[in-house]
Simulated assay, not measured.
Amino acid sequence: MHDLESRLNKLEEKIKQPNFRKNKGLGNEVGYYVFDYHAEKELMVRERIDYLVSKYENGSQDFKLVVFDLYDIIIDSLIREGFLELCMEFEKSKGFSEITKAVNEMLRMEEDNLNNEILAHIRNNTPSNAIIFLKGVGKCFPMLRSHKILNNLHQCVDDVPVVMFFPGKYDGQSLILFSEIKDDNYYRAFKLVD
Rank of each mutant, 00 (worst) to 15 (best):
M1V: 11
H2D: 12
D3G: 04
R7N: 01
N9V: 04
I15Q: 02
K16P: 00
P18S: 02
G27T: 02
G27M: 00
N28Y: 00
E29Y: 02
G31R: 01
L43R: 11
S54K: 07
S60H: 09
Q61P: 00
F68A: 06
D72N: 12
I73Q: 09
I75P: 08
D76M: 14
D76W: 11
L86M: 15
L86Y: 13
C87H: 08
E89T: 14
K92V: 11
K94A: 10
F96A: 11
E98A: 02
K101Y: 09
N104M: 10
L107V: 12
L107K: 09
M109H: 08
M109I: 10
E110H: 15
L114H: 04
N115F: 07
A120H: 09
R123P: 01
N124A: 03
N125A: 03
T126I: 03
G138H: 13
K139C: 13
K139T: 13
P142Y: 11
R145F: 10
S146Q: 11
K148Y: 14
L150A: 12
V160W: 03
V163D: 05
V163P: 06
P167N: 09
K169A: 11
Y170P: 02
S174F: 13
I176Q: 06
L177E: 11
F178R: 12
S179T: 11
K182P: 04
K182E: 13
N185E: 10
Y186I: 14
V193N: 07
V193E: 10
D194T: 11
